[in-house]
Design a protein around this nucleic acid. Sequence first.
DNA 1: CATCTTAGTTCAGGGACAAAAACAAGGCCT
DNA 2: AGGCCTTGTTTTTGTCCCTGAACTAAGATG
Lengths: 394, 394
Amino acid sequence: MARPQRRTVRDIRRGNRAVLLRALYFSGPTSRNDLTACTGLSAATVSTMTADLLSENIVVEAGQVESDGGRPRVLLRVNPEYGFAVGVDVAETHVRVGLFDLEMTERAKVDYMLRPARHDPELVARHILSGVEVVLSDAGVSPEQVLGIGVGVPGIVEPGADGVIHAKTFGWDGVPLGALLRRGTSLPLYVDNGAKTMGQAELWFGSGRGASEAVIVLLGVGVGATIVADGTTFRGVSSSAGEWGHTKIVAGGRPCRCGGRGCLEAYIGIEAILDRAGVTSRGNWEEDLAAVLASKSPVVEETITYLGVGLANLVNLINPEKIVIGGWVGIQLGESLLPEIRRATAANSLAEPYAATSIVLGRLGPDAVALGAATLVLEEFLNAPQVARITAAG
Amino acid sequence: MARPQRRTVRDIRRGNRAVLLRALYFSGPTSRNDLTACTGLSAATVSTMTADLLSENIVVEAGQVESDGGRPRVLLRVNPEYGFAVGVDVAETHVRVGLFDLEMTERAKVDYMLRPARHDPELVARHILSGVEVVLSDAGVSPEQVLGIGVGVPGIVEPGADGVIHAKTFGWDGVPLGALLRRGTSLPLYVDNGAKTMGQAELWFGSGRGASEAVIVLLGVGVGATIVADGTTFRGVSSSAGEWGHTKIVAGGRPCRCGGRGCLEAYIGIEAILDRAGVTSRGNWEEDLAAVLASKSPVVEETITYLGVGLANLVNLINPEKIVIGGWVGIQLGESLLPEIRRATAANSLAEPYAATSIVLGRLGPDAVALGAATLVLEEFLNAPQVARITAAG
DNA sequence: CATCTTAGTTCAGGGACAAAAACAAGGCCT
DNA sequence: AGGCCTTGTTTTTGTCCCTGAACTAAGATG
């Protein structure tokens, strides 16, 4: 309650600049005139502010559009080459580094395989740092043009400058990945849980687009969720909100790798699904899952039921506008069984919140984690686009 | 994404005024000098702003405090009699109307009993309206001094001006209580779910005080929760967030009065507890529960386990700083069994979020619902304290 | 070529906060 | 008792920002 929260005229400027930039970013090419309408700012303010943005090269002109009988509108857009963002996906089997421009077009990408058992933090950090160098030189982008590096990792990320990670399944307990990376780069770093970065990507560029209250669930080896409240990711007090996979849906039920019992993940995590189906995997889980789905085994129906219970709990507790199902297991299930998933969710939800929720599939592929990580950089850019220049010198 | 969100200099004024007023309200008697420190505003701004507030009689002086060797500080405080708020608790067995001053001291109160089966909306509305008249005349307060009326009701309240209510257990389905009340009063109305108003009360004046991320759970006949994110109640897209009682903890488990199976309420709602204990109630649930607790029956341990699972789900999903257990059942359980509740929660939570959460008992008594309803009015007052006067005339 | 229409820019005016200076009110020392 | 010091509060001055209105730009129309 004691955080200073005063506002001064400068905050207005910064805030309005962010509003303008967001409008420009999400509406694509737009005229100044339309910007006054959609931001609510006066024409004068839009004019001076766009002039600033143009002179800083953050915004560029993008052709004209004739108006019926008057001066044509000049279209403006965010300059996709004003800066670049690096997105990193640290997963159980690989480290993937991507370079994105401001429009989140992937310009370069590099993968490093990890041997499943070997997750030496130093090695991962070296992969990331060399990956950044590789994608930059591949794309011909210099480090000064990079606005920051976003990293999506498994497990819980402590808030704070060091990016300390706790990932039991990964063998990391208190690994300061942020600090390790800091030794090799001076670029701004953003470290977040991979389920959250994927959620961020679906929210901004995928099926969650435009939703203000939403949940993006990730079904894969692990099960997680991103809770979006008022348009931004809800993180809780210590950044671990969204551990949906370890909420209990059967008190005292199946044991889970987290040590608990009856966790959702212990029913609909890929290992749990295969285990319940009696499949001993030969390593290719995607094929295995496809086989189970094709088998019409009762395990499929059970899985949908458990998933429906888990989703219904989100519906009742969070009352989201939209639930996006992502992760490769989620996509594979959803592609054929979305109506059944909806039915199972409805059966376990209260009527009013269920009616307010639409359940959809994620649209982004396997690169969503890296894309979302890069989006952390973009978000920062849109909120605080560059520090104000020294106006007297301009 | 298209909502106009521009800011102008006037917004700064309003915002800073709200910041100042909140600081004054929550810190009690405070000098202008301390206000500059705790709001971050400059002394000049605090001075002019307090002068305004003093002339409007919103703030009054509250004595002096000597400083070591200098001019003594003049203490300021919010004038508790500047205005009043009405809080209404509509429950299954009664309608309670309370009048509170700005410090939330109850000045008058009146109860109307409801026959359990008879919940005619018109009758309830008449009770509320006549209750308002009664408390005002009892306390000698005129309607002009009342800043608004807050109403806490069971069930889900639709967002919108009519205050439409869906309360299955109450026999109300789409009752526009707000519109019914609007016919009898022109005061500002705020209608919200009773579990949420109770949560609001605990958050502002009870055990949740100062928490920014918290969950306040209500255990009574029904089971509900208030989720607090970033200091404010999270409502979800259609205001029904927090239906914790109908999240499933045993897929396919005990039938619940909501029509579902395995709901938390079907295990730890008072009726469920008594049912599981094999008690056939003679009408006094509080005594019945006390008897069960005294009996050392295994039902008690089971109840704690189920409650622990429910709380752990909140810990994992929401990652709150604090969980407050309220409602009469919650208090009765917690008074003797809080350590066991904590243990059961820990057993079902992930270590990191559990370590970040403290589980405490609610502090406010049975009037918390009405108090919280009045707090809705207070919140509005603190955020937008009066429309700005015509400055030229002053 | 004059007029109309729409788009965008410039400028005066007023509101808001910060920093600094001035003022106020008491204690302390000589 | 009077000057000096310390602390609290108010006034003055300056800078920043937004808006509304006047103004310029650029094309269409007849």
